[in-house]
């Protein structure tokens, strides 16, 4: 596969390490009342869609950016590639 890196342009997927579902960005608040339950769901529950999937890829053999790649798991078509940092900020993460 070829991943169109937002900074570096098209790169072979061999340069990347795959992590998984991009919902791993949404790490729960440790001080929430049901933090244990939220962390359990965060860590263990994943959707496994046949179709569009937002997932995390690490450009380990490149610039070490974490990317959020929107990929169709059936056709392997890549619909969007974003810097994970931008996605994280957009989802309200900060420090």
């Amino acid at each position: 596969m070829i991943i169109n890196h937002p900074i570096l342009g098209p790169r072979d997927s061999q340069e990347f390490t795959y992590l998984g579902d991009a919902t791993l960005i949404d790490r729960p608040d440790w001080e929430a009342d049901d933090a244990a339950g939220q962390f359990h769901d965060y860590l263990y529950l994943r959707d496994n869609p046949a179709g569009e999937h937002r997932e995390l890829w690490f450009h380990e053999q490149g610039d070490r950016s974490w990317l959020v790649v929107t990929r169709n798991t059936v056709t392997h078509e890549i619909l969007n590639v974003e810097l994970a940092r931008d996605v994280a900020r957009a989802r309200g993460r900060s420090k």
Binding site: L24, I25, W66, R85, S94, K95
Partner: peptide, 11 residues
């Protein structure tokens, strides 16, 4: 790097 970019992007 995951923590730095994905969890604590403003650190």
């Amino acid at each position: 790097e995951f923590a730095r970019q994905c969890l604590f992007p403003d650190m």
